[in-house]
Design a protein around this nucleic acid. Structure first.
Length: 862
RNA sequence: GGGCGCUUAGCUCAGUUGGUUAGAGCACCUCCCUUACAAGGAGGGGGUCGGGCGUUCGAGUCGCCCAGCGCCCACCA
């Protein structure tokens, strides 16, 4: 036995000592000799590498870790890799701010970049330095590498039992290869396609975005009532719009087919204010007679309804907003009057807000706006990370079919959702409503840089025009490729952009197009068939609910296509961590204390304890008080271990292997404890099997305090000074309970349990077998749980009597009378000596009664 | 507009198929240095289980209705 037990056990330094040891011993190494049924594989969310992790991440990753540790102890080879999601826009934005640069793909590679001295806090007014694409990518790589080191340090300190030899990054070679391979296969099967179509567009980042990244924000706006003129000169038609600046992009007016007010106008045309452009009046069921004046103008494109109308009514395209979010400079060819062009010239080059101001002034001057604008607040579509509303522009983009335009596929994905085990079950609703509400396919191309390149080139024809239908794709064996930096197969670099040459697709995939492949990346799909066969489909996907529509759904889509299977069996959905004031935690608020600060202050076990108290799927408020409780628990585990092990003197040692003696020799109170212990093991095991770590913790914890407060106190005297036989029963039971409790707490308080375990056991507690009642089944079966319950209740009453008389618990009691039902008195009789010893009771008498009561006569002579 | 979740002690939450006086921790109050633990321990006060109706011998637990909070989805001119 190892075992030097410190005089004053504490938590300080346990993280450093044990995480180092675990690393050296390979405690969490994945045993890849196990067949699939002996493996538990976890598709860990790769955290976004964007500066720092907050306490919410620490919380949900701990949830997963408790399950991983349970499964490992239950005998599974746990496949628990960790990834870093470093590609994509968040990193680009950080690099832009941190280094004060912007990517200009037309520039040549500089070779070096000098980091500004005050990096990260550039003076306001500083203008971003344009740098080449390659340099920009190098800076991205540099920054994420620094962050990933910090992230790993935190996860290790937190005690995540990750196998650190299995890590990946979403910009890494393996992820790029997997992303491109899957994309090429999607393309070959027709699941990926390119189309020139109206697209949600973020004007600040100048990239297309997907439906899943879009969100509504309540935004101030105003109704403007505008007059359209009838060609016969009769009364004007009034429409209401919140976007008068799009008047120049108007292609029609629309009203409901049954709206009698406008029926006579259908098929006729009207002329727009300011620009005098003739537009038809059309009918469509989506026009709401109740809204505004009941007739609306259709612009290309003001919102997604415009897109629907434009498509279904086959209207022309009159786009006036450029990719930079400004009104296009070129005069629209659909306007011909000098006056119209003059009006337009005044807004050309302005952003939409400036343009709106000017258009309103023009309308006021021309008398074509009725009354003042009417202020309202309405939902407007934003990119979830964006500051300005989305625009809709037509552009050529890549899509993956996700059921948004195809009922059969949609049904297939809904069925997949049904096959998945959702924890908690009601989270499936989010998946269903999202899939049912899809309005188009999944847009995966982004006009950005730090991402996985679309692995496609295009031929340039003899006239120097790019032919997007003449695609050139690489052989899978050459992946990953970068079409912007490498020539197309069969060409050389000098032919780039030349007639009869090629161009590379300059887009990258959205980060979700890679993240959706994490099970395939982690399990080394097509790269390591042996590993893949042992780990895929995976067992568990832990994630938060807000990315069900993105990460979870897109992963189901990709796995369905590549493996015709669900990527995992269970989806364990976690909630949010909220501030103590119930507001969603966010870094922007400042003053956020990071997980590492909490670990340093209270210990990793305390943070893990708090995290594991949050039930699956529910939001939790962060509470410092909870950390203190966890700390108390961890210290208690150390102290009670020290106490129990201290009882075992030389004479007793050696014979006291837990459960090593015939059950009949145990005292009734001890059997009673073992019977309760067995029940708790059953409950905790069942809870863990259902991935309900919080319940497992709660049951274990409740039993542990009952063990410390009541059982240990009751048998203390006997364990010190009882007859050999009675002593043995007590110390043996104490050790048996401890042996089980340490293992049951190991998934939660991984450091303190390891420390306590090391005082008397060989090996790591994290490699020990998960407790089972079968190890002491006969003893547990022989025990009556009532004995401990009644004994503890009587002891509590005696303590209460002393407490109310303000006496020390040490004070002797001359006589205690217990009135209770016969069966309970019978149970008490089995433990009378222990109760008397623990309560310092001279005489204990009992009397049958209907109700429980205790009278204690305190001996005040002392 | 449709849907999901929540509502139990001052606070944070348990309460698994309906079953004896509704639990825990924190906070608060009182007491105690008792041979593991004073960065401890032992006790105490505190709840008409959001409201209403119903099913039942019996409802915090099941059904319906209502309210408040949070969230998701929606074609939001």
């Amino acid at each position: 036995m190892p075992a030097t037990i410190p005089d004053k056990p504490g938590l300080e330094g346990l993280e450093a000592t044990w995480s180092k040891r675990w690393d050296a011993d390979g405690t969490y190494r994945f045993d890849r000799t196990q067949p699939r049924e002996g493996v538990f594989s976890i598709d860990t969310p790769p955290p976004t590498v964007s500066g720092s992790l907050h306490v919410g991440s620490a919380c949900s990753y701990t949830h997963t870790d408790t399950v991983a540790r349970y499964q490992r102890m239950a005998g599974k080879a746990v496949f628990y890799p960790m990834g870093w999601d470093d590609n994509g826009l968040p990193t680009e934005r950080r690099v832009q701010n941190y280094f004060g640069v912007r990517c200009d793909p037309t520039l040549p590679y500089e070779g070096t970049f000098e980091v500004p001295e005050r990096a990260g806090r550039l003076p306001s007014g500083h203008r971003a330095v344009p740098i080449s694409r390659r340099m920009f990518l190098e800076l991205c790589e540099r920054l994420v590498a620094e962050d990933e080191v910090k992230f790993e340090e935190l996860w290790r300190a937190l005690g995540l039992s990750v196998d650190w030899s299995h890590t990946y990054t979403t910009i890494g070679e393996g992820a790029r290869r997997t992303s491109q391979r899957a994309f090429l296969r999607n393309l070959a099967r027709g699941e990926a396609y390119q189309a020139d179509a109206p697209t949600l567009w973020d004007v600040d980042d100048q990239t297309a975005i997907a439906q899943a990244e879009m969100e509504d924000k309540e935004t101030p706006g105003a109704y403007h009532r505008l007059a359209f003129h009838r060609s016969d000169g009769s009364a004007d038609v009034h429409i209401e719009t919140t976007r008068p600046e799009l008047l120049a992009a108007c292609v029609a007016l629309v009203a409901h087919p049954e709206d009698d007010r406008y029926k006579p106008l259908f098929g006729q045309s009207v002329r727009t204010p300011l620009y005098d452009v003739e537009v038809p009046v059309v009918a469509h069921r989506l026009a709401d007679p109740e809204k505004g004046s009941g007739i609306a103008m259709i612009c290309t494109f003001g919102d997604t309804t415009d897109v629907t109308w434009w498509r279904e009514l086959q209207l022309p395209t009159r786009a006036i907003i450029g990719h930079d979010g400004r009104i296009k400079a070129a005069p629209p060819e659909w306007m011909n009057s000098p006056q119209a062009l003059a009006h337009y010239a005044e807004i050309a080059g302005k952003n939409v807000k400036q343009a709106q101001t000017r258009v309103v002034e023009q309308l006021a001057a021309s008398g074509e706006m009725l009354g003042e604008p009417r202020a309202i607040t309405h939902p407007v579509k934003f990119y979830e990370r964006g500051k300005r509303p989305l625009e809709i522009v037509a552009s050529r983009q890549w899509y993956i079919r996700n059921g948004g335009r195809d009922q059969d596929r949609r049904d297939a994905f809904l069925r997949r959702g049904t096959e998945l085990n959702w924890i908690p079950p009601y989270m499936k609703t989010r998946y269903d409503t999202w899939v049912e509400g899809l309005t188009g396919d999944w847009l995966i191309s982004r006009q950005r840089y730090f991402g996985v390149p679309i692995p496609v080139w295009y031929r340039v024809d003899a006239d120097g025009v790019v032919d997007h239908d003449a695609r050139i794709v690489p052989d899978e064996s050459t992946l990953p490729v970068d079409p912007s930096a490498e020539p197309a197969p069969g060409f050389d670099e000098t032919q780039r952009g030349q007639a009869n040459g090629f161009v590379g697709d300059s887009d990258v995939m959205d980060t979700w197009a890679t993240s959706s492949l994490t099970p395939l990346i982690a399990c080394a799909w097509e790269d390591d068939h042996d590993l893949f066969a042992r780990t895929y489909p995976m067992d568990m996907r832990p994630q938060a609910y807000e990315i069900i529509r993105t990460w979870l759904f897109s992963t189901v889509v990709r796995s369905h296509y590549e493996t015709d299977a669900l990527p995992w069996k269970h989806a364990a959905i976690s909630g949010w961590v909220l501030d103590p004031d119930r507001k969603k935690m966010s870094k922007s608020k400042g003053n956020v204390v990071g997980p590492m600060d909490w670990i340093e202050k209270y210990g990793a076990d305390s943070l893990r304890y708090w995290a594991a108290s949050a039930r699956p799927g529910t939001d939790t408020a962060f509470e410092e008080a909870q950390l203190k409780i966890g700390r108390k628990l961890a210290i208690k585990i150390l102290n009670v271990t020290k106490f129990v092990l201290g009882l075992v003197d030389d004479e007793a040692t050696g014979t006291l292997e837990p459960g090593g003696r015939p059950d009949a020799e145990f005292a009734a109170l001890d059997l009673s404890l073992l019977s309760q212990l067995a029940s708790v093991i059953d409950e905790a095991t069942a809870a863990f099997e259902a991935l309900d770590y919080a319940r497992a913790l709660e049951r274990t914890e409740a039993f542990f305090w009952r063990f410390c407060d009541d059982y240990v106190e009751l048998v203390k005297t006997r364990a010190y000074s009882g007859e050999t036989f009675d002593r043995w029963s007590a110390t043996s039971t104490l050790q048996l309970a401890l042996h089980n409790l340490q293992r049951m707490f190991a998934p939660f308080v991984c450091y303190a349990t390891e420390e306590a375990w090391s005082w008397w056991q060989d090996g790591s507690v994290h490699g020990a077998a998960w407790p089972s009642r079968s190890a002491f089944a006969a003893a547990a079966g022989a025990g009556d749980p009532l004995v401990l319950d009644v004994a503890a209740e009587v002891l509590a009453e005696v303590r209460k009597a002393k407490s109310e008389k303000k006496l020390s618990l040490n004070t002797p009691v001359a006589r205690v009378a217990v009135r209770d039902t016969p069966d309970r008195l019978g149970a008490l009789a089995e433990a009378t000596d222990d109760v008397c010893a623990a309560g310092k009771i001279d005489v204990l008498v009992t009397e049958a009664a209907d109700e429980f009561s205790v009278t204690a006569t305190i001996d005040t002579d002392a």
